[in-house]
Design a protein around this nucleic acid. Sequence first.
DNA 1: GGAAGTAGGCACCTCAAAGTGCGTAGGGGA
DNA 2: TCCCCTACGCACTTTGAGGTGCCTACTTCC
Lengths: 147, 147
Amino acid sequence: MATTTAAQQRAQSKVEYDAFLAACPSRELLNRISGKWVALILAALGSDGPREPGDVCVGEPRPMRYSELSRMLAGVSQKMLTQTLRSLERDGLVSRAVVPTVPVTVTYELTDLGVSLHHMVRGLKSWAETHMDDVIANRATYDTRTD
Amino acid sequence: MATTTAAQQRAQSKVEYDAFLAACPSRELLNRISGKWVALILAALGSDGPREPGDVCVGEPRPMRYSELSRMLAGVSQKMLTQTLRSLERDGLVSRAVVPTVPVTVTYELTDLGVSLHHMVRGLKSWAETHMDDVIANRATYDTRTD
DNA sequence: GGAAGTAGGCACCTCAAAGTGCGTAGGGGA
DNA sequence: TCCCCTACGCACTTTGAGGTGCCTACTTCC
């Protein structure tokens, strides 16, 4: 069996490519922002005020409390909120500040780096808003075509 | 137990928010491009030529064959390549063309929509390339700080 | 006639991300 | 006194994206 070629070459190139993938900054960025709550937290910290129904939601970046985020991102578990905020803090995208009030409160805020990333995410968002209809339409025609 | 409030309100808002998330175009877009091979395929179809080591990799969008993609994205399984290409085709981001040659071959190419999305992805890529070093540095300092 | 290549389909398995539930400390209000 | 608020930590469970292996039908080459 000296002619292993196919399978082994495949495994070999796979290892190399996996290493390449792991080192690729774009891929790592994708892993970061593709978390289920990352983009939401970025959006919340980036531009949303306390928002009343008619709000335009394009305010200024503003520090927000843990419980405030928890209420705003309804449906997020405490665990995921904490975990996501921690990872974002670790990456220097948000800053955490403990405020020694009556019961101790914690506020989170976007750093400059976080704001710059937020701009990119908003770019994606605008693409989605302008083109996602086409995508949905394409899906519909594709699905009916295969019927 | 008429005062269910907390838990039930939570479940309620969760359902509503999950529905909102499912309907949100940005979220759907993220789900799409955060696939492990989606961005790679976009990149491959978007600008990569057969690429020799010194290439700048900013060529023209070019139709590529299935086997060509398979070779280029070393390490991808046939299943995932097929599956990802299908989903991209369904969304109208790539077009599939069967060429009845000697053994039947298939070529894939970015559509206009795919090209526009590719531009956004390149934006993300450039952000990653310029800022990911900072992120890594922040991680390192954060980790040493917690030691 | 068997091997190899072309573009996949199908079924099973794995593993990590996300969800669920319970506990914490320390104080404040009824 | 008892419970609830703050912002979490920890352990268990689930789920679905992705991986692996084996299969196809057709053709051409050796």
